[in-house]
Computed example of a mutant assay.
Amino acid sequence: MKINVLTLFPDMFTPLQVSMLGRGLEDGKWDLNLVNFRNFTTDVHHHVDDTPYGGGAGMVLQIMPIKKALDSLENRGKVIITAPQGKTFNEEIAQEWSQEENLTFICGHYEGFDQRVYDLADEVVSIGDYVLTGGELPTMSMIDATVRLLPGILGNAASPVDESFSHGLLEYPQYTRPAEFEGKKVPEVLTSGNHQKIAQWRHKEALRATYLRRPDLLAKKELTKEEKEMLAEIKAEVEK
């Protein structure tokens, strides 16, 4: 997968070049192409913004340098703008994007884009109902969530399958050594060696975590008969 990012601040993307994603870059499992669209301006001062027609506070990003930067790409693939008015990013979208060969993100700044920039995009996506100073941080979050799903990035093929949201539930609790710390013990079932019971316990605890912290996710999920029985037990335990 090749990911292009049109941004005024390419230096902000260093976090994507370290840790597991960084190793993936070095190993050629994905490619990151950072494009500063200020380089596509034509005036002496390299302006990328201007005052809005009709008046108002702040500056608006011009379409011309962004369009030229986009046209310079060999393979742009799906073009994405990060903006508060977009649909909310989630694991389903990350899964969908991870199947693409090329993605291109356009990062905004100042008071936003000239409206005609949105006509260049295939999707407008948000990471939540709040406003940041620019599109770089949301773009990095979306790239991280997408690239980590690529084969070989995490090292363990099962890792993304078992994680939060992969099955519409939050992840079950995890434990490691020591088996007891300051009086708090690891649940016995996890040290029992009985893989069937461990799987059942993890499933129930994932349901419990979702019920307690994100009940909205349960409302969207079609529960199996077994899950409904587990959920009834959880509700009874919580109400005690």
Score class of each variant (00 low, 15 high):
Val124Cys: 04
Val147Pro: 04
Val161Met: 11
Lys87Trp: 00
Ala83Tyr: 15
Ile143His: 09
Ser166Ile: 03
Ile127Val: 15
Asp50His: 04
Val124Asn: 00
Ala94His: 08
Gln85Pro: 00
Ser72Cys: 10
Asp50Arg: 01
Ile63Leu: 15
Val60Ser: 14
Ser141Phe: 02
Tyr110Gln: 09
Asp119Phe: 03
Glu92Arg: 11
Gly152Tyr: 14
Tyr130Leu: 03
Lys68Tyr: 10
His167Asn: 15
Asp50Pro: 01
Val124Met: 02
Gly56Tyr: 10
Pro52Asn: 13
Ala121Asp: 07
Asp50Thr: 01
Asp129Val: 00
Gly152Cys: 13
Leu170Glu: 01
Lys67Gly: 03
Thr88Ser: 06
Tyr118Ser: 01
Ser126Asp: 05
Ala57Ser: 10
Gly155Leu: 06
Gly112Asn: 04
Pro151His: 06
Leu70Ala: 02
Asp71Tyr: 09
Ser72Asp: 12
Arg76Ala: 15
Phe89Val: 05
Ser159Tyr: 03
Val131Tyr: 12
Leu132Met: 12
Ser98Gly: 05
Ala94Thr: 10
Glu171Gly: 02
Glu101Ala: 11
Ser164Trp: 07
Leu170Val: 06
Ala158Asp: 15
Leu150Asp: 01
Gly54Lys: 01
Thr133Val: 10
Ala57Lys: 08
Leu120Met: 09
Asn75Ala: 10
Glu163Ser: 13
Gly56Leu: 08
Ser72His: 08
Asn75Gly: 03
Arg116Leu: 05
Cys107Trp: 12
Ile143Leu: 09
Leu73Thr: 05
Thr139Ala: 15
Lys87Pro: 00
